[in-house]
């Protein structure tokens, strides 16, 4: 099974950044989500963040809100998310889960980590879990050899980045800007400075997300980061596609454009 470390090492050997793509499980339906993720991988995504749809996604902008609402309406449960992870693992990409904290807590930390490991999941991104509240989570993820990805933000102090990095593994997720998910016309100028500060503190690979939607932006971020994270742009392509077949093509096309971008620098 490919790990996050494998994926970052392979990209580094090719002299490029890794491409990390996000889509919510169950959107627009559980089966179609698997096909869309497979198209993303075919287009060149190395690492897949499978989003766990949650009723109160307060870090997400309108596109991802619309997608997770559709997924919840389609009956997407945590079990469906874990099934999706198992199917993504068969594509050769490295599957992660991105989840707000409450669904994991209600599923049970031990049960969630165990099922993730059984499904071939490699790590979990928890955007609203702070290191202060993570003691039990660190124990169970260590036991099941899952990577834990915490976030750093432009407002994080150096001491805070150190604290977040000290409990993270796999990579450190650097939020490029102060704000919710969604495309921006330009990637925040705060991103390179944040990555520079993170590098001075930790040896973990640094992935940059929020606001990246085009191949050019991916190339720009790839010039200073180890991973380029794209989510809302994929979701937007699906929301705007006339039907599922067109959505599959649009997602694959965008992944190709971004994969070209991360190789351009």
């Amino acid at each position: 099974m490919r790990t996050l470390a494998d994926a970052f090492a392979a990209a580094r050997d090719e002299g490029r950044a890794a491409l990390i793509g996000y889509l919510p499980a169950g959107f627009p339906t559980p089966d179609q989500a698997v096909e869309l993720i497979a198209a993303m991988v075919e287009g060149g995504v190395d690492i897949v963040e499978v989003g766990l749809p949650y009723s109160d996604p307060l870090m997400d902008g309108p596109d991802i809100q619309a997608a997770v609402n559709a997924a919840l309406a389609a009956g997407t449960t945590t079990d469906v998310v874990l099934d999706t992870v198992a199917q993504v693992a068969t594509t050769g990409a490295v599957p992660l889960v991105m989840s707000y904290w409450n669904p994991i807590e209600q599923y049970g930390l031990e049960r969630f980590a165990l099922r993730m490991a059984e499904a071939g999941g490699q790590g979990v991104i928890t955007p609203d879990l702070t290191p202060e509240e993570a003691a039990d989570w660190i124990t169970v993820t260590t036991r099941h050899e899952l990577d834990r990805i915490f976030l750093a933000a432009p407002s994080s102090t150096d001491a805070r980045i150190d604290r977040v990095a000290s409990v993270s593994s796999g990579f450190l997720y650097a939020a490029s800007t102060m704000g919710v998910t969604g495309g921006r016309t330009a990637v925040s100028s705060a991103a390179p400075e944040l990555v520079r500060r993170c590098r001075a503190i930790t040896g973990l690979p640094i992935g940059v997300g929020i606001g990246i939607s085009t191949g050019d932006q991916a190339a720009e971020v790839a010039s200073y980061a180890d991973g380029v994270i794209v989510g809302s742009a994929f979701v937007k392509r699906i929301l705007h596609a006339p039907d599922h077949a067109a959505a599959v093509v649009a997602v694959c096309d965008l992944a190709r454009e971004l994969a070209t971008g991360v190789r351009a620098s």
Binding site: T130, E132, E133, A153, S155, S156, R160, A175
Partner: peptide, 19 residues
């Protein structure tokens, strides 16, 4: 100071930690 028994705490995106 952050908790009331097991309740309370801080479950927020990192961008809000500094504020």
């Amino acid at each position: 100071p952050w908790h009331f028994g097991p309740y309370g705490g801080r479950f927020v995106p990192e961008a809000l930690t500094a504020a």
